[in-house]
Computed example of a mutant assay.
Amino acid sequence: MSEIKPEDKTATDKNEEEQDWEAAKAFFESLKTKAPRPPKPQNAVTIAVSSRTLFNMVAERKIFVDEGVEKYVAFQVEHESDPLKPGPAFPFVKALMNVNTRLRNLYPDSEELFDIVLMTNNHAQVGVRLINSINHYGLTIERFCMTGGKSPIGYLKAYMTNLYLSKSADKVTEAIEEGIAAATMFMSRQESDLSDTQLRVAFDGDAVLFSDESEIIVKKHGLDTFFEHEKKFENKPLAQGPLKCFLEALGKLQRKFYAKNERLNCPIRTFLVTARSAASSGARVLKTLRSWGLEIDEALFLAGAPKGPLLQKIRPHIFFDDQMFHIEGANELGTISAHVPYGIGQKYNKGKLIEEPKKEDCYKK
């Protein structure tokens, strides 16, 4: 899966684009506002969040499903002065903003920042309540994309998105198929105290940071064959998975703090939380990261043990995994998790192959 890059442009196009941005920059500066201006998308790490991940819209969603879009829009307009409650992505977004504050203090003129985009298929009339809610909580979200019932996935590349978070598994799958890092977010079943000063992001390994090539061997041939395979190919880097580019983007911002001798006080911390065994299959993972020029702050090899209790100690703002039973286990213990629907693991549940219906059953009522 390759990193998303803007399409090639002619020198004239680039000059015109630069002129547009300089004009926009001059306009913002002329307003004499204390609010930070949005960075250029090509310089930023762009995080696109849906309205249902940023805010808790369960009640509103029920109106949409039960009574239709007109009743839903009318309800939102009627309650547009009532702030929506925080959703699963809310703490993550707040943590991104805190990192931006630190970056601006160290690099006042730099545009290498997180840029948060609200990406939603809501009707534009609902936008007033979303804006009011964003302002109520003091969130720095200036870019909106409201598609009025159509899928917003086609706009993700135009916004140069590095990560897309949604409550819709279908949209997330569509985004991943387009080569965009994406995950389906789930609210934890109990509240946890999360860091106010450090963004903590936890990743599974196979089928998240890395491809599912090794996981295919586990599922089809068992652990012994897997261990032999990993030992044999220990020095061959794994192919990249759907979230590799997001880890890369985090690393780019981390290095800006390291350059200012802030490694021990860096407001971004990354974790690898994998079911792999360290001695039997861990070396290939670490060597793969090294070959990519990427660092992970903490690597935890669980050898098949449950991830939930360890994540409870880490307390990440978000945990990415491709297996729903790991997501569920983490959620039960208070970890906000995001499912990455990628790879062979989607055909299994708790290690068992999900049986597909027989062809003749498809025609039964």
Rank of each mutant, 00 (worst) to 15 (best):
Y137L: 10
V126T: 11
Q76M: 15
D109G: 00
L103V: 07
F114Y: 09
Y72K: 10
V128P: 10
P83C: 06
L113N: 07
A89P: 10
T120C: 13
R102Y: 01
G148I: 12
P108C: 11
N100V: 05
C145P: 00
D109V: 00
N105P: 02
F92D: 01
L103A: 06
T147H: 07
R129H: 07
E112A: 09
K94H: 14
G148E: 15
A124D: 03
V77S: 06
S81M: 13
P108M: 14
E70K: 14
F92S: 01
I134D: 04
A124V: 08
G138A: 08
N122Y: 06
M119T: 02
N122T: 02
K71W: 08
A95I: 06
Y107S: 07
C145Y: 00
V128Q: 15
R129F: 11
K85A: 12
Y72V: 07
A95V: 04
T120K: 14
L103E: 04
V69F: 05
Q76K: 12
A74L: 09
S81K: 13
C145W: 00
V128M: 15
F92Y: 02
D115T: 03
M119F: 00
E112Q: 08
Y107C: 08
M97P: 10
P91K: 04
E111Y: 08
D109C: 00
N100R: 09
P83N: 11
H79K: 15
H79L: 14
C145K: 00
N135G: 02
S133H: 05
N98I: 03
N135P: 02
P91L: 12
G127T: 15
T147A: 07
L139N: 07
F90E: 02
S81P: 15
T101W: 12
S110L: 05
F144K: 01
V93P: 01
A89F: 02
A124W: 10
V128L: 14
L118Q: 00
P108S: 07
A74F: 08
T120L: 10
P88N: 02
K94N: 09
E112V: 09
G68D: 09
